[in-house]
Amino acid sequence: MHPESRFLAHHFDSLEQQHEAATMGMWLFLATEILFFGGMFTAYGVYRSFYPQAFVAASHHLDVTIGTFNTGVLLTSSLTAALAVHAAQAGRRRAVIGFLVATMLLGATFLGVKGFEYHHKFVESLIPGHGFVFPGPHARHAELFFSLYFVMTAFHALHILIGLGVMAYVIVLTRRGQVTPEHHPSVELTGLYWHFVDIIWVFLFPLLYLIR
């Protein structure tokens, strides 16, 4: 019996078939995710075209420095995630765990900074629906902007949180020896997912913070 065949599920004929299925499943899941965010991006696009000035004014209440820092954090985490996959291919189990832990720490940093930003908005009374105060003539439309800001970044943060949970699980799998150079779909697919989460942010950041 081939040593890798312990990973073969009963309903597949070969590991290749099993890998192909898993990878394809992940890509389809990401397609679903893109459309999930797509609805919100559409809403953003429509409202931005309706109320460009209000959106510019509201955008000025976001801190570009913090946003840039967070973007850097997330891009770095994508790098460590890619390195984890690379280490898995090379069979360096400890390195896999190390890179995953680094990715998790960076993800957690992102969430922490995001929380700090949310808190700041709370102090500034920029929470929609709860005593929202916005100086200047665009208060109502700015509230739309901040509604979108909170909903989109919160859904994104939720995805990061899920990613952290998944990586914790993959670390356990790796420690149990379920990751080998030939068979490491868990690391590979987690990496794929994490890059996706990263890419969503790469769109969110300019739309919310930069386009002014």
């Binding site: 109320y51 000035q53 209000a54 003539p137 665009h138 439309h141």
Partner: peptide, 12 residues
């Protein structure tokens, strides 16, 4: 929403 589509030549 007077400022949404301001006529040219006038202040908001």
């Amino acid at each position: 929403e007077p400022q949404a589509k301001l006529t040219a030549g006038f202040d908001p």
